[in-house]
Design a protein around this nucleic acid. Structure first.
Length: 731
DNA sequence: AGCACGCCGACT
DNA sequence: GTCGGCGTGCTC
């Protein structure tokens, strides 16, 4: 049907970054060309915002009051968001019960990337020669004499001179400035560059993955192999296969800012690093990566979970490394698990996905066992040499001295390790000096004024700090309640306190503390890690972050100070988490074939997670965990959603929680539990209550929650409701 | 989500 | 008398 030329301005739906359930409608002025996926700038209230032209709804476009209709301000000259990505945005919005615009907002978070990249300023040699010639100037001119264009810094670097030499030659008229085409943010990876020898076991796994990629189409594969079995090299072959097909690849990593080692291995295999994508990217780089993922110049992105929302033009493979890692779960604004959404992305895009882990999540293991995912296993035997000898230390039998935290057997092994000139790592997942400080006289406990949590003493900084908000205060000399001087007592250990104990016990050893709150940030941390790898420390005391993929070749002892820490919550997922974390951290030892040892201090050596670690029998552990989940109808045998109600007062939050509960319609396959005070009942001055919606495997939680919210009264005052489908915590 | 509008407390 | 707190409502 021909368009009526006399009709009013053409309109299109545009997804804008608001919580609106539907796209808004905008007029398209003459001369503006847009199609679904086009990124546009539109007026929204008093400001201009980016938006994505959406697909016309099936039932025809929405009727909009013509008085409200405003025109698209400009269509950006950039590749449109592909249809597969648009379907993905819709899918994520529906699944997570977020507004599509808020999901689109995650795609559009590279503000300046929508305009074409400006040309790179370049230099080309001219006939002019400077009056004064110097050795440095000669080197520069010699390099450039073939007439090819150079960047200013590239030329200076190649000639081994400072920028001022180049600038001087420009001033002298020996170079003219020209426009170079925008530079790629990384060089193209070469699939054949560093093809190396794989073990027979790796080779057959790699062949399998290659075949899957070559065949194309959707498939999900769990690549399971213990630490040291060479999973990364195996999935690199899948990456190579996708590159051979000319497709783009996304490798998701948990907390990429710290995975320097991965980038180096990638570089060694492909002759160029992947493009990085994470929150502390420089804005300029961020912009270029976004743009070049969209136009296809970037072939491989290694990124944190938000990389899932990059507008790749031809994505053909996703790898999720350490697929079990809790860092994949985003818990603000849009609540999503990047691992699960990655599977959806692959499904919608019709391409394969590989989930890699030494200790898969119970959900993924179950999917593999049920045949929904393919299962490729790297044989444990080939990694045997790289595995430490693991033992539990029963803290009831060999307790540490009073006020100390290292048991005699662990101390003895540290001593032996030092004597051999090797390194020891002590792992404790708790920052600071002590998690609780109290007054010995009156019993006063230091609490955060805005959160329901103890203040953690950080002796190094002389502060009491809240780990849930920014609150911190100097450690006082007198108790604020009873005024008694010098009677504050630290309860329990943090890594600073372990460091103190280590220094007292091994005064000649070089000890170093590594934790995420270290001053100096990521850069400093990386330097510290390199220093450790080079052997500039004897004992490393670290939190969580030492568990992640760093290789310290001389490390032969790992001591877990408090293996029971993660089990305290009583969450059904705690055992699994403990198993995963302890596997990862003990795997830091012995990556070079030296005999190595992992010692696990625990008060419950009979716990299935401890037994699984010590015996290396993950199979029995997974079987027991899966059985337990099945019994409780917990994921993946049932479905869970959490509803978090927060408000400025406890009463408001609780009242609205009750109102929601009352509004929840009866359903045969869904149960509502709560409201109960959330695990952290007060965060940043906001009181929180939680409802848990528990359904059968087939239950439609989304529709149920939609109905419940619609039936409940509108939240008033400071009350906010957020929905978390598939929450991390089952409590 | 942002942003403006609007109505009540302490100060240039 | 104003500046500024954040509750309420709206954005095609």
């Amino acid at each position: 049907m021909a368009a009526d030329s006399s009709s009013p301005a053409r309109t299109v739906p545009v997804l804008v970054p608001t919580p609106s359930e539907r796209p808004y409608t905008y007029a398209v002025s003459a001369g503006v060309t847009v199609r679904p996926g086009s990124i546009v700038q539109v007026p929204l209230g008093p400001r201009l915002v980016p938006g994505i032209v959406w697909d016309a709804p099936e039932g025809g476009a929405d009727e909009v009051d013509p008085k409200k209709l405003r025109p698209i301000e400009q269509a950006f000259d950039c590749p449109p968001v592909p249809a597969g990505m648009r379907r993905f945005i819709d899918w994520v919005a529906r699944y997570t019960l977020s507004a599509p615009g808020m999901v689109a907002r995650m795609v559009l978070r590279a503000p300046a990337a929508f305009d074409p990249e400006p040309p790179t300023p370049g230099l080309r040699i001219t006939d002019g020669r400077p009056q004064r010639m110097t050795a440095a100037r000669e080197r520069v001119l010699e390099l450039a004499e073939d007439g090819l264009a150079w960047t200013r810094s590239g030329l200076a670097h190649a000639a081994g001179v400072s920028l001022s030499v180049v600038d001087g030659l420009v001033k002298a008229g020996s170079f003219e400035t020209i426009d170079l085409p925008p530079q790629p943010v990384v060089a193209a990876p070469d699939p054949e560059f560093g093809e190396g020898e794989l073990s027979p076991d790796q080779q057959s796994a790699a062949d399998d993955l290659r075949a899957v990629v070559e065949k194309g189409g959707f498939s999900a594969t769990l690549l399971e192999g213990v630490t040291g079995s060479g999973k990364t090299e195996v999935y690199f072959e899948a990456v190579a296969a996708a590159l051979d097909k000319g497709r783009q690849v996304l490798v998701l990593l948990p907390e990429i800012a710290l995975t320097h080692a991965f980038l180096e291995r990638f570089h060694a295999r492909f002759g160029a690093p992947p493009a990085e994508w994470h929150s502390d990217l420089a804005p300029k780089t961020r912009e270029r990566v976004w743009r070049q993922a969209a136009d296809g110049r970037v072939r491989v992105v290694a990124g944190a979970r938000s990389a899932l929302f990059l507008p790749f033009c031809d994505l053909g493979l996703i790898v999720v490394d350490e697929e079990h890692d809790p860092a994949y779960k985003q818990e603000d604004r849009v609540f999503y698990n990047a691992r699960d959404m990655a599977v959806v992305r692959a499904h919608l895009g019709g391409f394969p996905i590989v989930l890699a882990s030494a200790t898969p999540s119970v959900e993924t293991r179950h999917n593999a066992e049920a045949g929904r995912y393919r299962h490729v296993t790297l044989d444990r035997r080939f990694a045997e040499a790289a595995l430490p000898d693991l033992r539990a230390i029963d803290m009831r039998r060999t307790p540490p001295a009073r006020g100390k935290f290292l048991s005699p057997p662990l101390q003895a092994e540290i001593g032996k390790t030092l004597e051999r000139g090797e390194q020891a790592l002590l792992f404790l997942n708790r920052r600071g000096y002590a998690p609780l400080t109290l007054c010995r006289v009156c019993g006063h406990r230091f609490e955060c004024p805005d959160c329901s949590s103890w203040l953690v003493e950080h002796r190094f900084r002389g502060q009491l700090m809240c780990h849930h908000c920014g609150h911190h205060e100097p450690v006082p000399e007198a108790c604020p309640q009873c005024g008694t001087l010098d009677h504050l007592v630290a309860c329990g250990p943090g890594i600073e306190r372990i460091a103190e104990e280590v220094v007292g016990r091994f005064p000649d050893a070089r000890a170093i503390v590594l934790s995420s709150d270290m001053m100096g940030g990521v850069k400093r941390l990386r330097l510290e890690l390199e220093a450790i790898a080079e052997g500039q420390a004897d004992i490393v005391i670290g939190t969580q972050l030492v568990a992640k993929g760093h290789n310290f070749p001389n490390l032969t002892l790992v001591g877990v100070v408090d293996a029971d820490l993660g089990l305290a919550s009583g969450d059904p997922r705690a055992a699994e988490r403990t198993f995963q974390l302890l596997s990862q951290v003990t795997g830091r030892a012995g990556r070079t074939g030296k005999k190595s040892l992992g010692l696990i201090q625990t008060y419950q050596p009979e716990h299935p997670a401890m037994k699984a670690i010590v015996t290396g029998d993950g199979e029995a552990f997974y079987a027991s965990q899966i059985a337990e989940r099945e019994r409780g109808q917990l994921p993946p045998f049932g479905r869970l959603a959490a509803v978090i109600v927060s408000a400025n007062t406890r009463a408001e939050a609780e009242a609205y929680g009750r109102a929601l509960r009352a509004a929840a319609p009866p359903a045969g396959d869904i149960m509502v539990l709560g409201p109960a005070e959330a695990p952290l009942a007060l965060i940043r001055g906001r009181h929180r209550f939680r409802l848990l919606v528990h359904g059968t495997e087939r239950a439609d939680l989304q529709t149920y929650l939609r109905r419940t919210i619609a039936a409940a009264p509108k939240p008033r005052g400071s009350v906010r409701v957020s929905l978390d489908i598939d929450p991390q915590s089952f409590l």
